[in-house]
Nucleic acid binder design. Structure first.
Length: 424
RNA sequence: GGAGACGUGGCCGAGUGGCUUAAGGCGGCGGCUUGCUAAGCCGUUGAACGUUCCGACGUUCCGUAGGUUCGAAUCCUACCGUCUCCGCCA
């Protein structure tokens, strides 16, 4: 949510920023609602002040056994008008809030202006291309021959997009999750949390999934809960409604969770194997920072994700998203993509974003400055560190051998245990 | 799932319709004291919104939402949450 005060003060600047995100908003209606709201508040506050004074006078007279019926009549009349104005205020605020909830976050000044993903600049590349002199297999071919997963049976249980990992494939999935968690906890100083995989409407609204993207999520109507599309939702909401002492910042959480996405509207796109799923595993990084620190923390966050890929020896590149490709809640975002030699393509495994105060305002997440300054909104950030399905794809395809087996990188040794690093 | 108890500021806790402008304590902050010293004394203490001549002023907030009333932390209704007991259960 944007600051209504900022909209009031610089509507043209806001309009242009939102336009750069390819969104058009009717700001005139918003400003009118804002004006109405303030007018009504002014009026009702005068009346309430009057009521308070007269009520006090009633109390005084009653104490002195005096008659107060004339005052009571007057207050009754004032009370009626207050009720009407209170209703009007509530109505106006609901409408205003509905409008504000529809506005995406403003892009940061440093974000290149552009209309869509085709304009996203590549800002970094790391690693060397895996180009052996034998014919490369895709992860599906590798997985089937080594019995690492079983898509037909997964589909039998829950429909397409719900993967079933088997044998050493299941072990590898678990190894990757544990490796990434330990790495972020021990090397990068994150605090581990293991959150619920469902969240309520309020939590989904804080992070920006609601009210606009209801159809993208799995819903449990009986309990008014949603399956989380990312651990970002429950983890960001850990501090919903709280005022955090400045000395506790930054807070860095690291969380593993299953993620659930309906992927509505994307049927027929990347449907092969692990490229796009309804359920997948992800290690997520979430930060709460002071406003002045959020951009340096974004760079560190991106490094934290990159280092996972470097430790696994996988070729990656970093993309900076242009304004038109930024998600609803993001002010700035980097995507990290892995090279999948078998698929012969880049696969997005991480998205690192700074939301500035956008989520904090929706969820009332604030901090109290040391030395007693005014309480203010903090900044939230998050990034995948990283999602497993496409990581698994790149890993299997990058470490495949001519004989069809796979030799995993050494860092996974402790996690593969008795299964070993040689999948055959 | 059944029964009961409870929900007040950062924390503890008083408050059963007007004397509350939420007592008192703890903690925090500022100051004074320096033979009450593992201390003492004094002062101070939250959030949101609106107006503003930037000095302030006003309104709201006692789990949440409604209701009764001239007036609600206090009475009524619903919901949410916590705890205890019973049932069920990995």
């Amino acid at each position: 949510m944007l600051d209504i005060q900022k909209i009031r003060e610089d509507v043209e600047g806001v309009r242009q920023g939102i336009l750069n995100k390819n969104v058009t908003i009717d700001f005139e209606t918003i400003l009118k609602l804002d004006q109405t709201r303030r007018d009504v508040i002014s009026e009702v506050e005068v009346l309430k002040h009057k009521r308070n004074l007269v009520s006090k006078e009633v109390a005084t007279r009653k104490k002195n056994q005096a008659d107060a019926s004339d005052l009571i009549d007057r207050t009754r009349e004032i009370g009626g008008r207050i009720k009407a104005l209170d209703d009007q205020q509530r109505e106006t605020e609901v409408k205003l809030e509905e409008c504000l909830m529809q506005i995406p976050n403003l892009p940061h000044d440093s974000v290149p202006v552009g209309s869509d993903a085709s304009e996203n600049p590549v800002i970094k590349a790391w690693g060397t291309r895996f180009e052996p002199d034998f014919n490369l297999k895709t992860h599906l071919e590798i997985g089937e021959s080594l019995k690492l997963f079983d898509f037909p049976r997964g589909t039998k249980i829950a429909g397409p997009g719900f993967p079933l990992y088997t044998g050493k494939g299941a072990r590898l999935e678990r190894a990757l999750i544990n490796f990434m968690l330990d790495f972020h906890i021990d090397e990068h100083g994150y605090t581990e949390v293991l959150p619920p995989v469902v969240s309520d409407r309020k939590a989904m609204t804080t992070t920006g999934q609601l009210p606009k993207f209801e159809d993208d999520m799995y819903k449990i109507p009986q309990d008014e809960l949603y399956l989380i599309p990312t651990a970002e939702v429950p983890v960001t909401n850990i501090h919903q409604g709280e005022i955090i002492p400045e000395e506790d910042l930054p807070i860095r959480y690291c969380a593993y969770s299953s993620c659930f996405r309906r992927e509505a509207g994307s049927y027929g796109k990347d449907t092969r194997g692990f490229l796009r799923l309804h359920q997948f595993n992800k290690v997520e990084l979430v930060k709460f920072t002071k406003p002045q620190d959020s951009y340096s923390e974004l760079e560190k966050l991106r490094r934290d994700a990159e280092e996972i890929l470097e430790a696994l020896g996988l070729e990656y590149r970093v993309i900076e998203l242009v304004t038109g490709d930024l998600s609803f809640a993001a002010a700035k975002c980097y995507d990290i993509e892995l090279w999948a030699p078998g698929e012969d393509t880049w696969l997005e495994v991480s998205s690192c974003s700074n939301f500035e105060a956008f989520q904090a305002r929706r969820g009332a997440i604030r901090y109290k400055p040391e030395g007693g300054g005014k309480v203010q909104l903090l900044h939230t950030l998050n990034g995948s560190g990283v999602a497993t399905p496409r990581l698994l794809v790149a890993l299997l395809e990058s470490y495949q051998q001519q004989d069809g087996s796979v030799v995993l990188p050494e860092v996974l040794g402790p996690y593969m245990g008795s299964a070993g690093l040689h999948l055959e």
